[in-house]
């Protein structure tokens, strides 16, 4: 079922928590170079689906492939290709911005070049705050630092869960640029948002998660958050 041109292929993904079924058989194919936005109500299972693609949750049923690698059988191959931006920023508040990035680089086994770290921080507008502890950052600044961390991971597949939350217009542009850079390199992006206008302007394709399944989204259908 896997073809070289697709970034993600999900087939019949179902997941339950206790006795409640959040996903009931979601199918989705994302091509290389494609950006897909998923709309859905609160509790429709968007985050669950993203966490399954990120190998953080196992599906109760169904299977999935990321760049030809099976989620269940080759999780490490999947993990080395994805970059997840979740609800939380994965930022340690008692470390400085530069130390946070340095930690990520050391976890990847890369050497920490202070000038490269500073350059990455400058791209997200935190150049002046490299040596400030993240605890003092505003929510928007922490989100920007999370975007810098995502850049450091150099992912082929971006998994973005409400990436615009707490970002100002300039910060929103940073997300757009990150998606564009990833796609240029042959990567793909899955984007979860409740913002219909941003979804349609950034993504090639917009789908809906409804009653635990993926459905095509028709313009005009209001997705209430």
């Amino acid at each position: 079922m896997s073809s070289a041109s697709s970034a993600v292929e999900l087939a019949g993904i179902a997941r339950r928590f206790g006795s409640r079924w959040v996903l009931k058989g979601a199918d989705l194919v994302v091509g290389s170079g494609e950006a897909v936005a998923i709309l859905g109500r609160n509790g429709s299972g968007k985050t669950t689906l993203l966490r399954i693609v990120a190998t953080l949750l196992r599906p109760s049923r169904g299977s999935g492939v990321v760049f030809g690698h099976d989620l269940a059988r080759e999780p490490d191959a999947v993990r080395s290709r994805i970059g997840l931006l979740g609800h939380t920023n994965a930022i340690y508040p008692d470390l400085t911005a530069a130390e946070n990035l340095g930690f990520t680089l050391r976890m990847l086994g890369r050497s920490v070049d202070p000038r490269a770290v500073e350059a990455t921080l400058i791209t997200v507008g935190l150049g002046a705050h490299a040596n400030t502890r993240a605890r003092g950052f505003s929510a928007g600044m922490q989100r920007r630092l999370a975007l810098a961390r995502l850049r450091a991971l150099e992912p082929q597949l971006l998994l973005l869960d409400e990436p615009y939350s707490s970002l100002d217009p300039e910060g929103v542009e940073l997300v757009t640029a990150l998606i564009a850079d990833t796609r240029r390199a042959g990567g793909a992006a899955i984007l979860i948002t409740h913002d219909v206008s941003r979804a349609t302007s950034i993504a090639d394709r917009v789908v809906m998660l409804d009653d635990g399944r993926i459905a095509p989204w028709t313009p005009g259908v209001l997705v209430a958050e």
């Binding site: 019949g12 179902a14 339950r16 006795s19 409640r20 079924w21 009931k24 058989g25 049923r61």
Partner: peptide
């Protein structure tokens, strides 16, 4: 019994 409830919830798709 949990699995039976599961099949029902999935609408026969299980």
């Amino acid at each position: 019994s949990e699995l039976a409830a599961e099949r029902e919830a999935l609408g026969g798709r299980g």
